[in-house]
Amino acid sequence: MASINPNGPLKGRTAVVTGASRGIGEAIAARLAMEGARVVCSARTAESGDSKLPGTLHDTVDRIRRAGGEATFIKADLSVAEDRERLIEQAVEAYGPVDILINNAAVTFFIPVETFPKKRFDLMMEVQVWAPFHLSQLVLPSMRERKQGWIVNISSPAGLHPRMPYARRSGGTVYGMCKAALERFTTGLASEVYDDNVAVNVVSPGLVDTPGVAVHGLINEQTRDRVQPIEFIAEAVYRLASGDPKTLTGKIEYAEPFLKELAVQPAELV
């Protein structure tokens, strides 16, 4: 039975998880809390009515606290620089310097290139590329000073180059651009901060049954057999957010194969 271990490997560490009101972010927040982390959950949806989708930051924090974990939430719009700065400032005020940053938040529009509006292009790049970059800038000085830190960026197989034979796509080119940029940022930053004992990695979830995925209709009869349990992603993130920065860094890992390589079964979530 799933439970919180307050004396787990992440005891005393502060983790910030973006996009934590539902889906993958909520699962990651729960998994880190299970190992003793003090988790700061962030998203735009704090309370019921803030979004048409199910799930709120309040729900995520309540889930963790009911199980005996330590968590709080900070509502933030990651497309706004001031909100990103406030998020890190308030996280430090709440729990101390950030040890773990999970860049999971995303906003996505599936529109063909020919008709893709600049306003939506800019918003996707801001939230999925610039926000992880900026949040990393905000936490890195403390991580480097303390010689301790873990950054995990959530990507997608959409970041891979399409291969022949081409089939008609569903307007995912900009989404793929964002994820490819995020992955290149990850490996570049990993090389920059290697000597400072800071690990920077990517977890690529594959297809997961979340409210956001449902909105875009990405699970259908053709794709249903590729759906991956959310526990796989949460477990892979935990392993990369707690591993040795000298050996587990600069990696772009697909959750299920990565866990098989480690001979690890994903833990049940609280």
Rank of each mutant, 00 (worst) to 15 (best):
M1A: 12
A2H: 13
S3A: 14
N7C: 08
P9M: 15
P9K: 10
R13M: 13
R13A: 01
A15C: 07
V16G: 00
V17P: 07
V17G: 05
A20C: 13
A27S: 14
I28L: 12
A30K: 00
R31F: 11
L32A: 01
A33H: 06
M34E: 08
E35L: 05
A37I: 04
R38Y: 14
V40P: 00
C41Y: 07
C41S: 09
E47G: 01
E47S: 02
S48N: 11
S51F: 03
P54E: 15
L57E: 09
L57F: 14
D62K: 11
R63H: 10
R66P: 00
A67S: 08
E70A: 06
F73T: 01
K75R: 15
A76N: 08
L78S: 05
R84D: 06
L87Y: 09
L87V: 00
L87C: 07
I88W: 03
E89W: 09
E89K: 14
V92D: 06
E93R: 12
G96L: 11
G96V: 00
D99I: 05
L101I: 04
L101Y: 12
I102N: 05
N103Q: 14
N104I: 04
V107P: 05
F109I: 03
F110H: 09
I111H: 11
I111G: 10
E114P: 03
T115D: 15
K118R: 07
K119L: 13
D122T: 01
M124F: 02
E126A: 14
H134Y: 15
L135M: 10
S136L: 02
L138P: 04
L138I: 00
P141H: 13
P141F: 11
M143K: 06
R144V: 10
E145D: 13
Q148K: 14
Q148S: 11
G149V: 00
W150M: 06
I151K: 02
S156C: 03
L160W: 14
P162N: 14
M164A: 14
P165Q: 09
R168H: 09
R168I: 13
G172P: 02
V174H: 01
C178P: 00
A181G: 05
L182Q: 04
E183D: 11
E183Y: 06
R184Y: 15
T187Q: 12
E192Q: 13
D195R: 11
V198I: 13
A199D: 10
V200A: 07
N201V: 01
V202L: 12
V202Y: 01
P205E: 09
D209G: 02
P211Q: 07
P211M: 09
G212L: 09
N220K: 10
N220D: 15
E221Y: 06
T223L: 11
T223Q: 14
I230E: 05
E231S: 05
E231G: 04
E231P: 02
I233T: 08
A236E: 06
V237G: 01
V237K: 02
Y238T: 00
R239H: 13
L240K: 02
L240I: 04
A241G: 04
A241Q: 07
P245E: 09
P245I: 04
P245F: 03
K246G: 13
T247D: 12
L248T: 09
G250Y: 02
I252H: 05
E253L: 03
Y254N: 02
E256K: 06
E261D: 13
E261M: 10
L262G: 04
V264K: 01
